[in-house]
Amino acid sequence: NGVAVLPAPQNLSVHSTNMKHLLTWSPVILPGEMTFYSVEYQGEYESLYTSHVWIPSSSCSPTNGSECDITDDITATVPYNLRVRTTRDSQTSAWSTLEHPFNRNSTVLMPPRMEVTKDGFHLVLELEDLGPQFEFLVVYWRREPGAKEHAKVVRRGGIPVHLETMDAGAAYCVKAQALVKTIGRHSAFSQAKCVEVQGESLPL
């Protein structure tokens, strides 16, 4: 009946950066036709209360690559079990299960990319759009001895934000960090970027 004839995928692991989660495994090399894989997941709820229930991944059941974007499947900050098997026609391999459950609170948070520009005397910032789960803490200051730092929370990336009306001849610097409330964590601050009302963007 075609059960467990094919070799099962090996070396499952999850790579997660900025709340994008990618499940990868070693490809199964077989002669002849293309090999497919099926990915399934189980949240902590299922593993605790309905352990027989496994849910097909929304984007990789089936898939022919050796990776799967599971971002849309991992929708709560709880541990998720993940498993993959090889399929070809009616044949399937045994399931390979990720050794340790994955929790999105382990994602690597990178400092956000940003564009600091001036519109006349206006200091304008545009942050990278990292998706709806991200907010940003922006810190900016006038580059002079003893300058006071100003802070502002920006709710969404991808749209220009006016920070300050600048004085002629002064230079202003900006840095930002990404915040993810659903996992209660933030990234490191980005490198500061500075502009001068008359000059171009100056490196620190």
Binding site: G43, Y45, E46, Y49, V53, I55, S58, A76, V78
Partner: peptide, 27 residues
């Protein structure tokens, strides 16, 4: 303990959404 376990669902899309809600409630 009752609702999510008593419900029988065949639609994969609904199963996925209920799983998302159940795990969010657990969190």
């Amino acid at each position: 303990d009752r609702v999510f376990q008593d419900h029988q669902e065949s639609s994969p899309q609904i199963v996925r959404k209920i799983s998302s809600i159940a795990n969010s409630f657990l969190y």
